[in-house]
């Protein structure tokens, strides 16, 4: 019965209907991904944070997320799923689920990545895929940034004196690379007005018509020339997207572009009230 029905319907109009259904489903999938990715940006004491992801296709495989921990720290993750389009987007959702559940039950970014790899390893190997992620805990009280790395590029640190910082190298294998991997943590202390830029390779590998890549140097230059005192993270984000867009011109975007910016604000805590003597 089904076969007969199918053969009768299998003409041009049926193909059109199937194409339209597929288009509608891809749009819905894009909506789901946009909603999940672009959640509200958390409010963190003495610092500002923002995130942005621009997929190269309708949907993408880049990922960033924030998780506010009960102790007041902010857990940040940024990642890049192998491949592009719908397959990468499906694995991005898997990554998000693994991060959300690991973030709740682990003490630091190293443990988070270890738990994520344990949860995802078999699935990723079965699908011959992998995910690179960098996970960081920002403590606004002590200004310590602790991070662990699963095959991702390290963040760029920009100091207000127009200097680039040199974050301690944290190396680790991509998620899905090896079973039972333990991810080590590194940490650094930030100062007021310092900026941290987490990013994916879609930025540094953005290409112009001449086939040149945007590269890390241009990103560094853009950050240094725009990271003025008091500038808002949203404005810096806009400067970066404008710089990439000016560089690539009419050239089609090849890879997903994602960044997370964290800026340390002036300490506005009224410490005098804590130090006032009890009379």
């Amino acid at each position: 019965m089904y076969r007969r029905h199918f053969s009768l319907e299998n003409d041009g109009s049926a193909n059109d209907r199937e194409t339209k259904t597929l288009e509608r489903e891809i749009k819905l999938a894009r909506n789901i991904q946009t909603q999940l990715l672009n959640g509200h940006e958390p409010t963190v004491e003495n610092s500002s944070v923002t995130g942005l992801s621009i997929p190269a296709r309708l949907i993408g495989g880049d990922y960033y997320d924030f998780y506010v921990l009960p102790n007041g720290k902010l857990r940040i993750i940024i990642g890049d799923v192998m491949g592009k389009g719908i397959p990468a987007a499906m694995l991005m959702i898997l990554t998000r689920g693994a991060f959300r559940s690991a973030a709740e039950s682990t003490k630091g970014p190293g443990e988070t990545l270890t738990a994520m790899n344990s949860a995802m390893y078999e699935d990723l190997r079965k699908l011959s895929s992998f995910v690179t992620v960098l996970c960081a805990d920002w403590d606004p009280a002590t200004k310590e940034l602790t991070y662990a790395n699963a095959g991702h590029t390290l963040p760029i640190i920009v100091h207000p004196e127009n200097l680039l910082g040199d974050p301690p190298k944290a190396k680790g294998v991509m998620l899905g690379g090896l079973p039972n991997t333990v991810y080590k943590e590194e940490s650094l202390y930030l100062k007021e007005e310092d900026l941290v830029c987490f990013y994916t390779d879609g930025i540094t590998e953005a290409q112009n018509k001449a086939g040149e890549l945007y590269r890390l140097d241009r990103l560094n230059d853009c950050l240094l020339s725009n990271c003025n005192q008091g500038i808002d993270v949203k404005d810096i984000e806009e400067c970066i997207t404008r710089s990439i867009s000016e560089f690539t011109g009419d050239c089609a975007q090849r890879d997903d572009i994602t960044m997370v910016l964290l800026k340390v604000n002036h300490d506005q805590t009224d410490i005098t009230s804590y130090n006032s003597p009890v009379i």
Partner: peptide
């Protein structure tokens, strides 16, 4: 290769 851990995977496996 160094960043994503290709060499570590080869070494380990």
């Amino acid at each position: 290769f160094e960043t994503v851990g290709v060499y570590k995977i080869i070494e380990s496996l």
